[in-house]
Every structure is written in structure tokens, then in C-alpha cells.
């Protein structure tokens, strides 16, 4: 795995850790997705979506859910 995708996975998981305090997980995933849309450059979003679609095992459950929503948009 490249350093770059590892870093994106970590970033996505870090964001998810913040939103994970929210008990309503749907709301939490929406928060993560919005954050990715708001702050990530398109190349980064495409790469994390591609990673999720090919493997995704490094993503936390909440991050996975958020990237799934991002991919569906």
C-alpha cells in the first residue's frame, strides 16, 4: 500500500473518531461525509472511494459508511 493511501485512510479514520461520539450513527456518517466533501480535494476523495471499493479493510466502520455514502453521491 502506498504511503499516500495509508495517510488518507488515517485521515478518514481520524475524522470518523470525532463523529463517532454521536450516538445516532446515521447522523455521524453524514457528518464524516460532509467533512470529506467540504475539506478534501477531489483527487483525495476519488482515491479513498477507489480504496473503499477495492479493499476498504483499513477504514473504521463509520469511515467506511461515510465513504460508501460519498461513493453513492
Amino acid at each position: 500500500m502506498s504511503h499516500k493511501i495509508e495517510r488518507l485512510i488515517k485521515m478518514a479514520n481520524d475524522i470518523s473518531n470525532f463523529f463517532n461520539t454521536e450516538t445516532d450513527k446515521e447522523l455521524a456518517a453524514e457528518g464524516v461525509k460532509k467533512h470529506l466533501l467540504r475539506a478534501w480535494e477531489p483527487r483525495m476523495r476519488h482515491e479513498i472511494i477507489a480504496y473503499y471499493q477495492q479493499d476498504g479493510s483499513g477504514l473504521s466502520p463509520l469511515a467506511k459508511e461515510a465513504v460508501k455514502m460519498l461513493a453513492a453521491d
Binding site: S2, H3, K4, E41, M44
Partner: peptide, 18 residues
């Protein structure tokens, strides 16, 4: 309409030759 790269992302993209 899309956000650009942050400094650390610029570095990553540089190493990625993009």
C-alpha cells in the same frame, strides 16, 4: 467549486507526481 489541496496534501501529491 472544489476544495484544493492543503499543504500536507500538496506534499503527498508532489511525491505522487501530480
Amino acid at each position: 467549486p472544489e476544495p484544493g489541496l492543503r499543504i500536507p496534501n500538496m506534499f503527498e501529491a508532489a511525491l505522487d507526481k501530480t
